[in-house]
Design a protein around this nucleic acid. Structure first.
Lengths: 255, 255
DNA sequence: GGAACACTATGAACGGGATTCATTTTTTGA
DNA sequence: TCAAAAAATGAATCCCGTTCATAGTGTTCC
């Protein structure tokens, strides 16, 4: 009975085709102008067929986001495999997130948009579930490093669970991204390189947790050197246009 | 030539009437079901008149958000006037933010929704500008405390500007709010009281900045006592239903 | 082979609601 | 009092997301 399997596979493949088309259309016209009609027509299918896959437009966008989770996880895994201290790897995770946001601004916006309650309510529960499952490994990866740090004495044991400890870094990172994308906010305060700022805050937080080896916050350039070092050790394959502004003084970022 | 002035005042008053109606309708039917028609009719005006005030629905929502900024600022000012150490006051700001988010969940959702680039793009530049201006005092208030801390030696001077230092706390706070509202995320990790977690992270970050007096992170209950103390000193007029879960172990929060 | 059946795909039509603008009403000032 | 200017109106428009009755295609079994 391979008929059914074959059909399922074909269905899954078609879903990818739709998502590719959606991505392409968003890339050229912006998320605001994405129309279900156009997605369907670009793939030579009818709208009805498109709606066999997604319960709504938002549902499709969430699928698009979920599809890309694996790339983010890959970046995290690269960091996790890196032979370095636990603290360096934690910084590496934050860096990975920044790189991801810069590499794929579209996905960052999608994430932000779909996290909103109003919009999230328009997605199907099953796809929300799927999105969660797919992101699970992200947390698992950094939890492992936190456990390792506690085991080897880099990090004092705490009443908090590893996830709870990590959530602080996660929130800090998420929050900076939000501030960065709140139009005009950073201009108003003449903050030129928000991501360098993020690393400073992360270092402060890690220091506050007594995560060894402690870092001298007054020496900003050594912090930048560390980032540069992580980039060349772990992310040497990433386009320098994306990574360079993270440790050099001048920010060429134009979002 | 008071005619013009009178008209302007009347216009501003009518805008308030519209915003009140919008708030009422959102409160009863949810943001998703807000219709411009209904807002206009509830005020006995035509849709056209409504559109003399707002360039779009999103523009109206942003106005609604901006209108409420003063309440948030009031909470901050209460904290700023409190006769206490600088570190306590910084915690107080974070607490004020949490209280605001719990008191006015609607405005929190609006904020989240309108910060999104997709939605923000649908608002008028002038209103975005206005929203910025109105929020300016928020930053000014906490910057003053940071300056004071540096002056009195609670906080070592740094190469970062006061705003830059504060932005870390701001981001952390914003990020936790985001995680809290990302449906199901906290359930998945059995995090019962995210705001207690926020205070722990804030304390870690402040410790990391060497903000005196340092706080013992292992003693969670003393942290909770501090929150309780701030609440009774500064926010005694706030409904205990809102403040109690912030320092007691059981979280009755149901968003 | 082909008839009956089940499963898929279709896209015109529907519906909901934001936005507009030609027209009417009100206010102003001489 | 009245023409000109300003403000208000709401029916009509337009735009899209979503649906569903119908047509098409593949499958099964005699």
């Amino acid at each position: 009975m391979s008929t059914k399997e074959r059909r399922l596979r074909a269905f899954a493949e078609r879903e990818k085709v739709f998502l590719d088309a959606a991505r392409e259309l968003i890339a050229s016209n912006g998320m605001l102008n994405l129309q279900m009609q156009r997605v369907a027509h670009l793939c030579d299918y009818s709208v009805g067929t498109l709606y066999l896959h997604f319960t709504s437009k938002e549902d499709m966008l969430l699928a698009l986001l979920t599809e890309r989770a694996s790339e983010r996880i890959k970046l995290f895994q690269t960091v996790a495999r890196w032979q370095a201290g636990t603290r360096e790897r934690m910084l590496g995770f934050v860096l990975a997130d920044v790189i991801f946001a810069r590499q794929q601004p579209l996905f960052f916006h999608l994430h932000q948009y779909l996290t909103t309650q109003v919009i999230s309510a328009a997605t199907s529960p099953s796809r929300r579930q799927q999105a969660h499952e797919v992101h699970q490994p992200l947390a698992a990866i950094f939890e492992a490093v936190i456990r390792e740090a506690q085991a080897c004495g880099d990090l004092p044991s705490s009443s908090l669970s590893p996830f709870q400890i990590g959530s602080g870094l996660w929130a800090l990172s998420e929050g900076i991204h939000t501030l960065v994308h709140a139009e005009g906010l950073l201009d108003a305060y003449r903050i030129e390189n928000p991501y360098q700022l993020l690393f400073q805050h992360v270092n402060a937080l890690l220091n506050g947790l007594n995560w060894q080896p402690m870092c001298d916050l007054n020496n900003a350039s050594s912090g930048q050197q560390l980032i540069e070092c992580i980039v060349s050790a772990v992310f040497s394959d990433i386009d320098p246009l994306i990574t360079a502004p993270l440790f050099s003084a001048i920010d060429q970022d134009s979002q």
